[in-house]
Design a protein around this nucleic acid. Structure first.
Lengths: 235, 235
DNA sequence: ATAATCTGAATGATGGTTCAATCAAATCAC
DNA sequence: GTGATTTGATTGAACCATCATTCAGATTAT
């Protein structure tokens, strides 16, 4: 390898490197930087798109230099995988929290899952944009694929269980819990796409109303027209 | 501009250029090549993904040289836009045909739209893959965005009209046609995503069954458990 | 003969990655 | 404690591989 020494201009001082907070252990500081770069990647995708996202964009978004990315992640690809992993974990945690806070009845749990999916913190333009960017690439990246499939399966399972409980307790006939749960989850993802493509026509509230409209037909006792969301949310 | 002359090896003959069929006018031949390149682009996206698709891949897929792409399209971007336009037009035509063949009752028309969406020719791995690739990029490409939004709006409108007719004629109460139509369309898109991410769990038939399961709850007379798809399909 | 079509090597721009130099924090020596 | 030394973190220019695009020349159709 030949010389690649830079002729640094001594008259220009280097930008002050952001200093870790006092008392923060090196290990924790390292974790914080990784997190910072992941957040910058999310913002970067939202701003520039998946295809146009450069390492330089991520660095700029984080207020750091380009070299730093390969110091904390072995490649751009590894950073993208870490970012999707972060999104998945964040989403799982969000749903768990909402479910734990909700009433234990089957209807309340289903309602909570819907609320979780359309919460302001997650069903916003930035998040939806980034999720669809990843989904668009999933097909050719096995690591993306696995993360998405596992999340989808887990959510599907929770929804099916709650649905089965609702069917059993409510004495409903001729309803396949698994099919309905799959349709419901699909509808939620599709409504996200709608919010992405037609934000004028579909907002969070309209989307939630759409989901409830279909639930009302299947489970009139719990989601019927005379019952409000508050009724089912109460334990 | 300096010389960029190639020292072509005269001993190797150029590959025979595919010749247009006899009697084909130049205008038609040109259209055929454009179409060929668009098909190659679709195959290329399906095979390599949006992010990794090179001009060389498209040319190879079409069995032509790299130079040809910029002869028929002013840029790679223009080719991608033409490809999406082709997909949109093809899909619109497909839906029109299926609707025209179906019975005129509201239920039959709704059923036909579902059948159209899950037809073997369109709800297959290749098509779904490519659509999601485009959707993933839509956010940052106004041309993509407009094409997708227009298609979505048109389909939404047809579905809402049929739904309203079903509600009026069937004497249903407390059902908002627009909300239900939006939910239904969203569910279809979401089931496509499911087929993409979890192909083992979700195939065309399961997906259709999911849609019908929800419709059965809302419109028991037309889609209820005792009625088969054939019943509503008949005029 | 002329125009349209087609080829593929050369070009030039772009952007991921590397790495020598520099800075900052932690540890050590006393 | 204070200065010296080691270790870790950060920078950004240089490197280099990768394409989209161009275009001189070859081929084919009219």
């Amino acid at each position: 390898m030949g010389m690649r020494l830079a002729a640094r201009d001594e008259s220009v001082p280097l930008a002050a490197a952001p200093t870790k907070a006092r008392g923060m252990s090196r290990e924790r500081a390292k974790e914080a930087r990784r997190r910072q770069l992941i957040e910058a990647t999310i913002d970067g995708i939202a701003r520039k798109g998946f295809a146009d996202l450069k390492i330089a964009d991520i660095a700029a978004e984080a207020g750091l230099s380009v070299g730093i990315v390969n110091f904390y992640f072995k490649s751009k690809d590894a950073l993208l995988i870490a970012t999707l992993k972060h999104l998945v974990e964040d989403y799982e945690q969000h749903v768990s929290q909402v479910l734990a806070r909700a009433g234990k009845s089957a209807a309340a749990q289903i309602d909570a899952m819907i609320e979780a999916d359309f919460a302001r913190t997650h069903a916003n333009r930035k998040h939806v944009t980034v999720w669809y960017a990843f989904w668009g690439e999933t097909r050719w990246r096995p690591e993306f694929s696995k993360l998405c499939a596992d999340l989808s399966t887990a959510f599907q399972q929770s929804m099916t269980e709650a649905m089965q409980r609702l069917i059993d307790e409510g004495g409903y006939r001729d309803i396949d819990a698994s099919l309905v749960a799959r349709g419901l989850n699909a509808m939620i993802d599709g409504l996200w796409l709608d919010m992405l493509i037609n934000p004028k026509q579909t907002d969070r509230e309209t989307a939630k109303a759409s989901v409830r409209a279909l639930l009302a037909g299947l489970f009139p006792k719990e989601f019927g027209p005379r019952r409000s969301a508050n009724d089912v949310s109460a334990a």
